[in-house]
């Protein structure tokens, strides 16, 4: 089944709508989205807020269900694994996730070491005594010192917390790591360190990444391929360097032109946005 020909992650026709209010039309967050991620590949999702990129990430991580469509990881359908603790843990070992808010995503009662040993014990990956050794190895992998193992989240900086969150995700040795705006809340210098760490982790293992970010430059640095989302649907996809340098779709061009840089003018962005909205309403009529 899982031959080298089939990609690690295969999402086909994912659809998700949210009912916001009784009587109102449901809001379509994800509209017929299909993509694949090869083992060891990094796929980026870009788009504005409300484009559906976070919902797709959460569907892959199992935090949100898709109304329709199929999602397979290593040939196993994520939706038919079944209920119960064993199935939950099996799903968890396939996909792990790192969240945007590095403080809120850690249990503030637990020390760094407890956070890591908890994850390993849960999955039976370290029996009792080895857990501490395993935690130490993980900490070394994310470049945290042994003294930091005894600290609690509030004693760590934002970048250190995000390293712990990454270590916790790696603790269960997942095939796919989902990063939802994982470096967006960090200062640029700290962000650069975390991106370097991700690069190292990818070189060490064949882990696949789904990297969600509104920051095109960061996506350019991290990912191999990218999907551009607008209104829940994919408007453009391809190799990241091609899409961001030779964008084909008008929305991608708008996104790139909106990013401040040399020659950037806010009035120009507004004009482009208006032109894009106009072209869309023309297309739909």
């Amino acid at each position: 089944m899982n031959t080298s020909a089939t990609p690690l992650v295969v999402a086909d026709g994912l659809h998700r709508a949210f009912h916001v209010a009784r009587g109102a039309d449901p809001v379509v967050a994800v509209d017929d989205v299909s993509f694949t991620i090869e083992a060891g590949e990094a796929l980026g999702l870009v788009g504005e807020s409300g484009s559906g990129k976070s919902t797709i990430a959460r569907i892959l991580a199992g935090l949100e269900r898709a109304d329709s469509g199929s999602l397979r990881v290593a040939g196993i359908d994520r939706r038919t694994v079944g209920h119960g603790a064993a199935a939950r843990l099996a799903r968890a070992r396939q996909v792990q996730m790192v969240f945007q808010d590095p403080y809120g995503s850690l249990d503030r009662r637990l020390t760094v070491e407890q956070t890591l040993t908890h994850a390993m014990r849960l999955h039976g990956l370290a029996g009792g005594r080895d857990a501490k050794g395993g935690a130490a190895e993980l900490l070394e992998r994310v470049r945290l010192s042994a003294t930091q193992a005894r600290l609690k989240p509030y004693q760590l900086s934002g970048g250190q917390r995000q390293r712990v969150a990454i270590a916790r995700a790696l603790a269960v040795e997942p095939a796919v790591l989902v990063l939802d705006e994982a470096v967006s809340a960090l200062d640029v210098s700290v962000q650069a360190q975390i991106l370097e760490l991700l690069d190292e982790i990818r070189r060490e293992s064949r882990i696949s990444l789904l990297f969600v970010s509104h920051d095109l430059a960061v996506v350019d640095e991290v990912t191999d391929r990218v999907l551009v989302l607008f209104g829940g649907a994919v408007v453009e996809e391809g190799r990241t360097q091609d899409v961001l340098r030779k964008p084909a779709h008008p929305y991608t061009r708008l996104l790139i032109a909106s990013v401040p840089g040399p020659g950037w003018d806010p009035h120009d962005v507004i004009a482009r946005r208006a032109a894009f909205e106009l072209s869309r309403s023309d297309a739909s009529t």
């Binding site: 991580a61 603790a85 939950r88 968890a92 996730m97 809120g104 995503s105 249990d107 994850a119 916790r168």
Partner: peptide, 13 residues
Amino acid sequence: RPYVDAYRVQGVG
């Protein structure tokens, strides 16, 4: 708080 999601992703019931 996202740590609750983090536990769910880890497979905790």
